[in-house]
């Protein structure tokens, strides 16, 4: 199923709005429905943050067909921007979020521009190398945290016109994570229907057609890569507040493997795919953990096995089972 032919029941908009509203309301009260414990809150907040992180990489992988191995850079930019600006200068969440978006756009524009002429695996190599180099810089440059990172990030403050929100506890961060996830989903849904989204898909699926229509594939690639960066960046921004610590471990390959696995597990180009994938993986890691090294084996194996045996993900597997009686 591609974004272009995805079902669009325009004839019954009321029903659709009602269903989405019900789903959103259920989603918001999900931690309370699951008992309201702090474990429920922190697990669901982590799922929301990681899902947003995955959606950034998802745009590039699903709609551009390229594998960006450098999205941990944007993830870390978000984390480091939040940590440095709030811990050292006492700036509030709006400012750190704006800084995250600006820095991610700049970094993605630079990385996208230098890799503009590279082909598929060279693009992946360079983005991967960029992540390793960014790690080296974050590890050695004491001004942004160095090898120890930054401890004692103050609680997230988002002053609004009337209220003065402050997220000190996991329970307080959940609404922020949930809203960020909703905004991301709305953005992705909009992107799928947008001119850029459909053109990117055309460039990936039928480059000859795209070329004959006068589309410049490089411009499309750069644009998609650049808009994907702040999404992952904002996830890193919230992750810094959730953990109250930021360090070079934000570059760990865990996050990269996590992004890719969550995207391919359910199936590419499915709106809720990365969210469901993230939920399954985080549930395994947080609630059914087998220990760090075994979790690595599980995560890596899931990634490899899905692509080898069911390239269309769980949705493809379901369709195949449904078709053969």
């Amino acid at each position: 199923m591609t974004a272009i032919e995805s079902p669009r029941p325009a004839s019954i908009p009321l029903l659709r709005v009602a269903a989405v509203t019900a789903l959103v309301a259920t989603g918001f009260f999900l931690p309370r429905l699951l008992g309201g414990t702090s474990v429920a809150y922190s697990t669901l907040t982590t799922i929301a943050i990681f899902a947003v992180m995955c959606y950034g990489a998802d745009i590039v992988l699903s709609y551009l067909g390229e594998v960006s191995l450098g999205h941990t850079v944007f993830w870390a930019i978000g984390g480091y921007a939040a940590a440095n600006l709030s811990a050292k200068y006492g700036l509030n969440g709006w400012v750190t979020a704006a800084a995250t978006i600006a820095l991610c756009l700049a970094a993605a524009a630079f990385l996208g521009a230098v890799t503009l002429r590279t082909r598929e695996f060279v693009f992946s190599l360079v983005t991967y190398a960029a992540a390793v180099v960014a790690f080296e810089i974050a590890f050695n440059w004491d001004a942004v945290g160095g090898s120890d990172g930054i401890v004692g990030i103050p609680p997230l403050k988002l002053p609004m016109l009337v209220t003065n929100f402050s997220g000190a506890m996991q329970e307080d961060l959940w609404p922020v994570a949930f809203v960020l996830l909703l905004l991301t989903l709305a953005f992705i849904a909009r992107f799928r229907r947008s001119r850029l989204g459909t053109t990117a898909l055309m460039v990936q699926m039928n480059p000859a057609l795209a070329a004959s229509l006068g589309v410049d594939p490089r411009r499309i690639r750069l644009a998609v890569f650049v808009i994907s960066a702040p999404i992952t960046g904002l996830a890193g921004w919230l992750y810094a507040y959730q953990r109250a610590y930021v360090g070079p471990d934000m570059f760990e390959s865990y996050f990269l493997v996590m992004m890719l696995t969550a995207i391919v597990l359910v199936g590419r180009r499915i709106l809720l795919g990365p969210l469901i994938g993230t939920a399954l993986l985080i549930t395994q890691q947080n609630l059914l953990s087998l220990g760090g090294d075994w979790n690595k084996i599980v995560l890596g194996s899931v990634l490899a096995l899905v692509l080898i045996f069911w390239p269309a993900g769980l949705v493809g597997l379901y369709r195949r089972i449904a078709r053969t009686p």
Partner: peptide
């Protein structure tokens, strides 16, 4: 010649090797 999937699969297998070696 599905190079995109191949890249991701080897990345996943590398992660498995890392976890397995640590064990």
């Amino acid at each position: 010649q599905n190079l995109t999937s191949l890249m991701i699969v080897t990345l996943g297998l590398g992660y498995v090797l890392q976890g397995g070696s640590a064990l």
